[in-house]
Simulated assay, not measured.
Amino acid sequence: MGDTTFRPTLGAVEETLLITLYGRAVETRDQNGLLDDPAAVAMVEAIDYDFAKFDGKPSLPRACLRTLTFDHWVRAFLAEHPAGTVVEVGAGLNTRFERVDNGRVRWIDLDLPGAIALRRRFFREDEPRREMLAASVLDTSWMDRAAGLPGPWFFSIEAVLPYLAEDRVRWLFAELTRRFPGSRLATDIATTAMVANQGKHDVVSMMAARFDWACDEPRDVESWAPGVRLAEECTLATLPEELVAGFSPARRERARTAAETVPEKFGSSRLSLFQLRGPEDGAAAPR
């Protein structure tokens, strides 16, 4: 396989996308795995990288549980707004579009330039419904593009915000609320314990990138901008009932085991779904 693989060039934060990719591949190879993602297996086999260092790490199945939760929230959004727009922030090599596409949604895969360059090796844009943009989440150019697509919007921001400084996260919430009233935003939030102990984390400790923003109470974000409301939250041990109800008994047991493998000192990240409400709810109208 050596002649058919290639070594990607990725920045510190971009490299973390390989953790979640490998997690999906591992779960796919397991007949009782949490998800089925043959594309992840193919991508792992095509990339020259030391994935074996992640073998057996509890964070792999936990990352898949997080991904499944975000899938669940996106599907719920599309059930209400089938022709809306989803922006996958930090898309990496995720296959969420392939899992949830309803044939009508508009979709933006957004990530840093190195990650998008890698993504283009495996994925193709499908105009006019799907496109890839290379930019930081803090770059307003992608917001200009998203604003030109049909609303409402869903912002899926997975494994991204903990790497930013809090003032940047605050700005992002305020800006998205101002520009996209009525949208939803899903993100994972690292606790102060996770940030403080990340040097001992089973996979984060292997990466050069480091967490910055921590928050122990997601509802505190509501005070950051008029119109922000915490609509739903869970941990990996308290997944949405509707999601778990669709699991087979074997998958349900695997999910339970995965949720219980994190050392107490790290805590569990909070998976949070925010509603960015419209002008009638007090949010500023878009300009």
Rank of each mutant, 00 (worst) to 15 (best):
G2A: 14
F6R: 11
T9K: 15
G11L: 05
L18S: 05
I19T: 13
L21D: 08
R24D: 05
A25T: 06
A25P: 10
V26R: 12
D30M: 05
D30W: 10
D30A: 14
Q31L: 12
Q31R: 15
Q31W: 13
G33R: 05
D36Y: 06
D37K: 02
A40C: 10
A42P: 00
M43A: 12
E45T: 11
A46P: 06
A46G: 10
F54D: 09
F54R: 08
R66A: 05
F70N: 01
D71R: 12
R75I: 09
A76K: 15
F77S: 04
A79H: 13
P82H: 02
V87S: 01
V89G: 01
G90W: 08
E98C: 03
D109N: 14
D109I: 03
L112K: 12
G114L: 06
L118G: 02
L118M: 13
R119H: 08
F122G: 08
F123A: 03
R124M: 00
R124E: 03
D126A: 15
R129V: 09
A135P: 03
L138C: 06
M143D: 01
R145A: 04
L149F: 07
P150S: 03
P152H: 03
I157S: 14
I157N: 14
A159R: 07
A165M: 12
V169L: 10
L172R: 03
L172T: 00
F173D: 01
A174P: 08
E175P: 01
F180P: 01
T191G: 15
A193R: 14
G199C: 01
D202F: 01
V203C: 14
V204F: 10
M206D: 15
M207L: 14
A208L: 11
A209L: 08
A209S: 11
A214R: 10
P218K: 15
R219C: 03
D220T: 11
A225R: 13
R229A: 15
E233Y: 12
L239R: 00
L243T: 09
L243R: 08
A245T: 04
A245V: 04
A250N: 00
E253G: 01
R254I: 00
R256C: 00
R256D: 00
T257I: 15
A259N: 00
V262F: 04
E264W: 04
E264N: 08
F266A: 01
F266K: 02
S268I: 10
R270M: 11
L271D: 07
L273I: 05
F274A: 07
F274P: 07
G278N: 12
P279Y: 01
P279L: 10
A283V: 08
A283S: 13
A285S: 15
A285L: 12
R287C: 10
